[in-house]
Design a protein around this nucleic acid. Structure first.
Lengths: 222, 222
DNA sequence: GGGTGTACTGTACCAAAGAACAGTACAGAA
DNA sequence: TTCTGTACTGTTCTTTGGTACAGTACACCC
């Protein structure tokens, strides 16, 4: 679908603003008046061009018969939604379509920093950070983190070997990284990762990466 | 503002549905056709009645010049949003416009049960229920609760006397209600309310009501 | 019993608004 | 160079659609 010209964009914006302000679309004459056209045919030409490009629909024979088409798309378009990421398929970026379980209608901008995806927490390893089993956490995608931040780490599950997301508190000292659960029960042990072998021997690579930092959570049951 | 009659409500609903479906309001003839009137004057009469009652505004001389008034418009647009309720103005229903601090884009249906409004928690009284200072809780509006449920209670602040929302765990035994904070620190004491005096002596009324039950929360900072 | 509001029918007028046709000018692509 | 698309002006025609006026019928309230 081709793009709108500058002028056509202005006209489409005017239609939008009229809808907001008056509650109904403008007439050809309204548009002509707004842009200083002496004839409403100019407005009509623009409308037909914008309609041909698929941004609006003109309903023939109806006064003010202008229907915005891209708006619903915008509403449906994940603008105010976040993907819930489950398991990670091998070799895919984390927010790849295949990894998205579903989309939840939550404004990404509610979180600080902004959330880029969601992940449902399984287990009690972050209990003492007040993140519980079943909570859905918002993650701001970035591949690094500050010391002490809670990160979403991607690494293979110790048994199945499949990539999965886990939340851990991140500490780095030189080449040594510690991923620390927030649960003092002895079952939960910090994970130590030494980056040093990475430089020399690529076989010893710890398949670990930071998907993002914890930005908040939503708990959906009372 | 007086209420609409059955017929007027049907007409207003039709205007709403037309706006959703076509993107612009109906004409008098559209309305007449929909309801089987043989004359568009019938539609016009209804429109003027609805406008007189303040639900719509008619823009004279404009085709399809029907504007839904603010609260009506709000109903349409707040479909996937929830009001954040701050302090409660005296004598107002909890979700009254004046009590709404802002609208947050969160799908009410995410919560179980469905959230009707949000409230920002102040203080640590529910810490042991993993509800922290600053958390935004989702509340399902209802005026009763089961024993052991966390409720949003509306009662006057002990000092300012202004109505405010507090979260407490609810227990009832006969005429005795206990509102229990979830924090074992000695500062936080259960609140006991005896409904018995209500029957005889109306002066002893405890100004307390349940606004709804806790349905989940959102924490917006990492 | 009269007034007011709701809920329509029926007719009529005319401004509002869509749509078609005929132009002009310019810019970029084939 | 011609063709296509953009960006308008100017005019005309016809339908759409708002609005006013004159009624009818019924229900409710004072």
């Amino acid at each position: 679908m081709s793009d709108l010209t500058q002028r056509q964009t202005e006209i489409l914006d005017f239609i939008r603003s009229q809808l907001r302000e008056t509650g109904f679309p403008p007439t050809r004459e309204d548009i002509a008046r707004q842009f200083g056209f002496s004839s409403k045919t100019g407005a009509q030409d623009h409308l037909m061009a914008i309609a041909r490009k698929g941004f609006i629909e003109l309903v023939p024979g109806n006064a003010r018969g202008i229907r915005l088409l891209k708006e619903e798309e915008a509403l449906l378009s994940h603008q105010f939604e976040l993907p819930l990421i489950g398991s990670i398929a091998a070799g895919t970026p984390i927010t790849a379509e295949t990894n998205v379980d579903t989309w939840l209608r939550i404004d990404p901008e509610l979180f600080h920093p902004r959330a880029d995806f969601l992940h449902r927490v399984a287990g009690h390893s972050m209990k003492e950070a007040n993140i519980l089993d079943g909570d859905i956490v918002g993650i701001h995608a970035q591949d690094d983190a500050d010391n002490g931040q809670i990160v979403a780490a991607v690494m293979p599950h110790p048994k199945t070997g499949e990539d999965e997301i886990t939340l851990k508190r991140y500490f780095r000292r030189g080449k040594k990284i510690t991923l620390k659960p927030e649960n003092s029960a002895p079952t939960y042990k910090p994970l130590e990762i030494d980056l040093a072998p990475l430089d020399g021997d690529s076989q010893e690579q710890t398949p670990f990466r930071i998907a993002g930092v914890y930005a908040g959570l939503i708990r959906v049951r009372g």
